[in-house]
Simulated assay, not measured.
Amino acid sequence: MVVPYEGRDSGLWGPGHRNLYFEAGALLGELQGHDRVSFFHVDRGTASGTWHTQLVDYLNDVGATHVLTHIEGDPGAGDGTWTWDSAWSLMDRFWGGVLLGTMFDSAFRYTFLKGKFLARMSPRFLLVDICMPMDGALVRGVPEVGPVNMPMSDESMALVEERLSTVEVEHDVSFVGVLYPNRIEMIEALRAEGFSVVVNPHRQDEARTRQETMANQPGWLEYMAGLAGSRATINFSESSAGGVQQLKTRVIEAGLAGTLLLTDDVNLTSRFWTPDVEYGYFSSLGDLPGVAESFLSDGQRSERARVAFAHKSRELARTGFWGEIDSVLLRRGLPSVLA
């Protein structure tokens, strides 16, 4: 069963919205049969005690073996409310399944402690961290899932392919994100080397600050079209919490958009793709123009890397998420979700 953080009344439910919980549930249905997957939506404004009880009842009614949900905040709340400790206590007492708790921002201490607390409550909790390795981080010696790539349903991949079919490659390099001073210097350095660089190509305005970048966001399909419009795109891996690198979702999105990835991630992207063969690695902003030049000046090298990166990204989008979860479930002696 999937309990989405942004459900049916969010405006982001359905294919083509980059909604992890829709994609994970829809993909599992494609892999295992849609009759084996159910969704439990919590409408905005529902009291926590109400949905806690309703969830436990529904889990037992449908015979659910696993729950996948977002444990950084309550489903449907959108206001920072967190009562998963109470919900998991009730589930642990009156339901015998496994809670698969997903996190995006465990680099933030308070968020990390939420997962640690739930893990200490019951061994039937498994953390699914999208961005960071977490083995032994919650309970010493106990494996968890992470990092793991964004799943993608066939429905959403079809929408991506349809949108990208009309996109023409117009730029050498794209950058999506906030224009901090050092990033502006990076862009100017690339342009000084003769590269055509586009910033936030999915937007019609010139967003520069974090607030402007986050406001009035275009849809996800337009974002993917923006990535596809350049030969390469830049990814910075440092968490907004600072001091730690993450496997950003943009990594696999670059592959699904069919563009070459240039990233400063030291050892997370390389868990899934081969550095300097399937993507370009730069160790510093000063290093970036040379790395870009080494790929983009060699059409055959950049095309081989782009094609290989895209091929593996499609494989990971279909098999990586649930495959990694199932592997760790078996290592933990917990029931398989794919059996």
Rank of each mutant, 00 (worst) to 15 (best):
T65L: 02
E303G: 08
V42R: 02
Q211V: 14
Q54L: 11
S156G: 11
G177A: 09
G33S: 07
L126Y: 11
S294I: 07
E206K: 12
T233K: 04
G219R: 04
G49E: 05
L256F: 12
G96C: 07
D74C: 07
L31Y: 03
M224D: 00
S297E: 13
S165P: 03
V244F: 03
S86K: 14
S38A: 12
L55M: 00
L316Q: 14
E23C: 10
G243R: 09
F321T: 07
L261E: 11
M132S: 14
F282C: 10
R93E: 13
A158I: 07
S230N: 02
D154L: 10
Q211H: 12
F282N: 09
T263G: 11
F94N: 13
L227D: 01
N149S: 13
S38W: 02
A158M: 07
L247P: 04
F22G: 04
K248P: 01
V328I: 13
L316P: 07
Y281V: 10
Y223L: 06
P143K: 12
F112S: 10
S38G: 11
R109W: 06
D264Q: 11
A215P: 01
S297I: 05
R183W: 04
N216M: 12
L164Q: 02
G97S: 06
S336K: 11
E222T: 11
L262W: 03
K312L: 10
G63A: 09
G16N: 02
L296R: 05
Y281G: 08
S239I: 07
P143D: 08
A339M: 04
D57R: 11
E315D: 09
G299T: 08
G258W: 00
S106Q: 12
Y110I: 09
F321P: 01
Q246M: 12
V128P: 03
L296S: 08
E168H: 13
L329F: 10
G45F: 02
P4N: 05
M91H: 02
Q32D: 00
D105H: 15
S230L: 01
D43Q: 10
D74Q: 05
I71N: 02
R332Q: 05
A257M: 06
D265N: 15
G97I: 03
W322V: 13
G280C: 10
G136H: 08
E212A: 14
F195T: 07
F321C: 12
P181Q: 10
L334P: 04
A24D: 02
V291G: 09
F195G: 08
G280S: 06
D287A: 14
I325R: 01
P289N: 07
S239V: 06
A192K: 15
V337Y: 01
R210L: 04
R93N: 14
K116M: 13
V42W: 00
A241S: 11
G115C: 08
M132T: 15
S165M: 07
Q245V: 09
E188V: 05
G25W: 02
G136N: 15
W13Y: 14
E161R: 15
A310K: 07
R304E: 13
P75A: 08
L227C: 06
I184M: 10
V173N: 01
R8T: 15
G49I: 04
W51S: 06
H70F: 15
S239P: 01
R183M: 07
S284W: 01
